[in-house]
Design a binder for these strands. Structure first.
Lengths: 206, 206
DNA sequence: CCTAACATGAGACACAGTACCAGTAGTGGC
DNA sequence: GCCACTACTGGTACTGTGTCTCATGTTAGG
């Protein structure tokens, strides 16, 4: 039932845009009252994001499941594989939705807020791998590594949705995360080539 | 005059919180009408952020002024020095405001949205330094480097506002940005020491 | 049959933000 | 002095989100 309403929201929003879709429109289409809508979802945004809300937990589990020997950056990259697949799985509809999200300021903000929530979920495991105290708020490193990695995800998603015939999302993410840790200069011979970008993962261990 | 209203907003918001301050309250205190308020500021959030809105341009100029030989990451770090000083200059009031911003979801979202806008400003220069085509939306690297760096800034600001007797913001940012590019393992002998963190700026050839 | 949850609907309300219209002060030309 | 012109200001009504309260079924258990 909840899912049914959520599907209605997606349909309407994909059709006419987010701002142009009022809650009353949704209620009329789903044949429910405003009261019922807001009992199901705390806000209009949540009706659109609610389905993917628990992706953070999946990410957290995937991260803790990585071998302890992996560096934080590599472990993050590998843990993101599951998330990537989820995005690429549904393919066309998900890409349209993602494009709509990055193109709507209110939704993009919500998306980033979701990332901020993931911060808290991933913090313990990343802190452990860094060797930092998770409770030490004056140590910015854990937060920084997670924010940087999630920034790369955002960059990859933007690039993915921008091109009509995109490369695999995993390849794009490899390029994004590789660009952060491997600044050009010593690796400039690769950077300009259109071929596959250097991967951040340890290809040997995978 | 505009600044006067903005100061009123800051006072009220610092006193009772953001959600608890209505624009009617602001108008009553500033002795203006709602119409006038919304002619000065497009939204309540902007009345709080408006003052620092042009920091993005400053950052852009600082970035293009860096020597072309510097890597993107190093140039970003050095360009952020100006922004850092701006934060540390006003000190106590700025820190209280920053803490309020990171603690209020709506304001935190707005802050990240501002970062997203800076993306566009910094993109040409970072793309140049990476050797990427700024117009190529399918290349995530430029976006990734900027998002990662701004994520480090967010991490540094969070750590800065969290501790009652904080270290210098520049030191915190060095630690944050260093943690992303220098994963522990080969540099673990430094990471646990409470002393000054390894700086990301060019101490040798970079 | 009765009642105690429970979901739903209906209406009033607070607040942000927009649009439009009217008054009012300053300014320059005649 | 008078008349337009302009810009700033205030007032009012409106849309839309989200909250709250209350009334109305609806159903399972006694």
């Amino acid at each position: 039932m909840r899912a049914e309403v959520a599907a209605t929201v997606q349909d309407l929003v994909l059709e006419r845009g987010y701002e142009e879709t009022t809650v009353d429109d949704i209620c009329a289409t789903a044949e429910i009252s405003r009261s019922t809508f807001f009992r199901y979802f705390p806000s209009k945004e949540d009706a659109l994001f609610g389905e993917t809300a628990d992706a953070g937990e999946h990410l957290q589990h995937a991260l803790t499941a990585r071998p302890p020997s992996e560096s934080p950056w590599v472990a993050m990259r590998r843990a993101l594989d599951a998330l990537i697949e989820q995005y690429e799985g549904h393919d066309e509809r998900t890409r349209r939705l993602t494009r709509l999200i990055v193109g709507t300021p209110a939704l993009a903000a919500r998306h980033r807020e979701k990332n901020a929530h993931w911060q808290e979920l991933l913090r313990p495991e990343i802190a452990r791998r860094i060797g930092a105290d998770p409770a030490d708020d004056s140590d910015p490193r854990t937060h920084a590594v997670i924010a940087a990695a999630l920034g790369c995800v955002e960059a990859a998603l933007t690039a993915w949705t921008a091109s009509t015939q995109p490369q695999p999302l995993s390849t794009i993410l490899d390029r994004a995360m590789g660009a952060v840790t491997e600044p050009p200069g010593q690796t400039s011979r690769h950077e300009r080539s259109p071929g596959p970008a250097p991967s951040v993962d340890g290809r040997t261990t995978r």
